[in-house]
């Protein structure tokens, strides 16, 4: 396959012609944030957090799904790019529950981590929020869809990697939601414990059930004083 020369942030780089801007950047240690993209899945360009500036292009482009082209000049962290990413995070957080302080996945949450990198705190835009009941019927996965950002990673991971088709996006606009069957809580009939979706979820929307007492199942300990 042909090699192509491109410039990213002033660095002269080369990549194979089937690579995306994101892949070339990543291979060269340039960090572009992503949310809907995962290297194991085909890109869908849904979240736009990976946008970069390409000289000569009227709009910012999504780096996770844009193939490189000869002579491309890319800026991954220009003021325009950073400002846009901030708006995207602000909008994602705007309809999010925003309870990061109490979220058991806060230290692993990719949304929170990108927000922190961009120096952003809790949601600032007052808007309607959708709170869903937490689904904890299944012994394998808990779904707290108030924390879902509709990145569709679980949908695609379940389809492409687990080779099941448990999830789909239903409804429209503000009501959009990742559903199971006829919008029923996920249970053992549709899903066994492969864990794939949980490991792909960038937020606290999917997690493994654990009892508070799980950590206290060890041997008895004697403390002498």
């Amino acid at each position: 396959m042909k090699n192509i020369a491109i410039t990213i942030n002033g660095l002269q780089l080369t990549g194979r012609e089937d690579m995306t801007i994101f892949e070339v950047a990543q291979a060269n240690g340039i960090n572009i944030p992503t949310l809907c993209y995962k290297s194991e899945l085909p890109p869908i360009g849904a979240c736009r957090i990976c946008v970069v500036e390409v000289e000569g292009s009227r709009t910012l482009v999504g780096s996770c799904h844009t193939p490189i082209a000869e002579g491309m000049v890319v800026h991954t962290h220009s003021p325009k790019v950073l400002a846009t990413r901030k708006v995207i995070i602000e909008l994602l957080l705007a309809s999010h529950c925003g309870t990061c302080f109490m979220c058991s996945k806060a230290n692993m949450c990719e949304l929170r981590s990108i927000a922190a990198d961009l120096d952003m705190g809790l949601p600032q835009v007052p808007t309607r929020r959708l709170y869903y009941p937490v689904e904890d019927v299944s012994p394998y996965v808990i779904r707290d869809l108030s924390k879902c950002i509709l990145c569709r990673r679980c949908v695609r991971a379940c389809r492409e990697i687990a080779k099941q088709n448990v999830f789909a996006v239903a409804y429209r606009g503000f009501e959009s939601k990742i559903v199971v069957d006829f919008d029923q809580p996920i249970d053992t009939d549709v899903c066994r414990d492969c864990d794939v979706c949980i490991s792909f979820c960038p937020t606290g929307a999917l997690s493994r059930p654990s009892k508070v007492t799980d950590e206290k199942k060890g041997r008895p300990l004697i403390i002498c004083d």
């Binding site: 088709n165 448990v166 999830f167 789909a168 996006v169 239903a170 409804y171 559903v179 006829f182 919008d183």
Partner: peptide, 27 residues
């Protein structure tokens, strides 16, 4: 109805979730 959607899912070879997703997306 749910019966119709289940049947369609089977005949097209997609999951019920996908059929329900499409059915609730289009006005």
């Amino acid at each position: 109805s749910q019966e119709i959607m289940s049947e369609l899912a089977k005949s097209v070879g997609v999951s019920i979730s996908e059929v329900y997703g499409a059915a609730t997306f289009y006005a």
